[in-house]
Computed example of a mutant assay.
Amino acid sequence: MTTVEDTVLAYWDACEARDWERFATLLADDMVYHLPQTRERIRGRAAFLRFNQEYPGDWHLAVTRVTGDGRQAASWVTSTLDGVEQPAVSFFDLDEAGRIKVVTEFWPEPYEPPAGREHLVERYDPAPR
């Protein structure tokens, strides 16, 4: 039996490998992809597959963590594009057949913290591997 974590790890592995045939098998036909920060939504496996196939640049993904239960999971990945690393957090909902039905993804831009809390925090390097 495949777990939700196995499905999400297979999703990221297929994406990194540009194995679009395998990637497509993990998606429900009527899946929906949400990007709240840019207020974009992609409906349907074919459109989402094309979105990923046509994404520009020589990007790579490294999975930091995947956790889930039942038909829901969350992942933390780091994308590298043109030498710049950027973390992402993704939330997945699977359908009854175990295919990915909904992905909601956040790609936050790193920023410097406001002054005044230096006495409470310690700074560290980006996402651990």
Results as ranks from 00 to 15, higher is better:
10 A>P: 04
90 S>Y: 07
106 F>R: 09
38 T>G: 13
27 L>C: 14
38 T>R: 13
29 D>N: 14
77 V>Y: 01
32 V>W: 02
105 E>D: 14
36 P>F: 05
88 A>W: 07
61 L>I: 12
101 K>D: 10
118 E>G: 15
14 A>H: 07
26 L>D: 03
15 C>W: 06
42 I>D: 09
91 F>W: 04
45 R>K: 15
39 R>E: 11
41 R>W: 02
71 R>L: 02
115 A>K: 11
50 R>L: 14
82 D>A: 15
109 E>M: 06
8 V>M: 11
11 Y>R: 09
91 F>R: 09
57 G>D: 13
24 A>F: 10
45 R>E: 02
40 E>P: 00
87 P>S: 01
12 W>N: 04
80 T>G: 01
66 V>Q: 00
15 C>V: 00
94 L>P: 15
24 A>H: 08
87 P>C: 00
7 T>S: 07
113 P>T: 02
49 L>G: 12
69 D>Q: 09
44 G>R: 09
60 H>M: 07
3 T>V: 00
44 G>D: 13
50 R>K: 13
122 E>L: 05
70 G>Y: 12
111 Y>K: 06
64 T>F: 00
121 V>R: 11
103 V>K: 06
87 P>G: 08
46 A>M: 11
10 A>R: 04
42 I>L: 12
36 P>Y: 05
72 Q>K: 12
40 E>I: 08
23 F>C: 07
32 V>P: 13
47 A>H: 11
34 H>K: 06
51 F>T: 02
22 R>L: 05
26 L>P: 00
62 A>E: 08
43 R>K: 00
51 F>G: 03
122 E>C: 00
36 P>W: 10
95 D>W: 06
31 M>N: 11
95 D>E: 07
85 E>H: 09
46 A>K: 15
126 P>D: 14
22 R>Q: 10
52 N>M: 14
49 L>R: 15
122 E>V: 12
52 N>G: 03
79 S>K: 09
105 E>C: 04
75 S>V: 06
126 P>R: 15
48 F>D: 09
105 E>P: 00
114 P>F: 07
114 P>D: 10
18 R>V: 01
30 D>P: 01
18 R>S: 06
94 L>Y: 05
98 G>I: 04
14 A>E: 00
93 D>T: 14
21 E>M: 08
109 E>S: 05
78 T>V: 10
116 G>N: 10
111 Y>D: 02
7 T>G: 03
24 A>Q: 13
99 R>P: 05
100 I>L: 13
42 I>E: 02
